[in-house]
């Protein structure tokens, strides 16, 4: 066996992706672009989970694939969230005839 990848490298990758996703959420005004950035953040968390599963030592009584199971559930939730998000975006687009987060602003205070 040659040299393996250190755990921290995966974690750095996940953190960097997460930070990029957060930047996208803050920077973009198009709702679909915001949704994409959120997906990046969720994927970053998944990398974390699977890396911790593969490298860590589970305490006694723990299932064999906890991190992977959570990652699978996260993928499911992300799919549901995107479906709901696109539904809401279409609804808002039909109302305002614009896809711009800053223009959905009739309430104030």
């Amino acid at each position: 066996m040659t040299q393996d990848i250190p755990l921290t490298w995966f974690l750095y990758f996940a953190s960097a992706s997460f930070a990029i996703g957060l930047m996208g959420v803050l920077v973009r005004r198009n709702p679909i672009a915001v949704l994409m950035a959120i997906e990046i953040m969720l994927n970053a968390a998944n990398i974390n989970l699977v890396a911790f599963w593969r490298y860590g030592t589970p305490p006694p009584g723990e299932g064999p694939i906890t991190g992977v199971m959570l990652a699978i559930f996260v993928i499911t939730i992300a799919a549901a969230e995107v479906a709901v998000g696109i539904g809401l975006i279409l609804l808002c687009y039909r109302r305002w005839h614009a896809s711009d987060v800053d223009r959905y602003d009739t309430m104030s205070g």
Binding site: A44, F52, T66, L70
Partner: peptide, 25 residues
Amino acid sequence: FVYGSVSSALFLFGLSLVYGLTGTT
């Protein structure tokens, strides 16, 4: 929806760190 999904993404990343720190959920 927008605030909620961003916050659940943040929550999930925190959760993944807790999982990494303790090895369990």
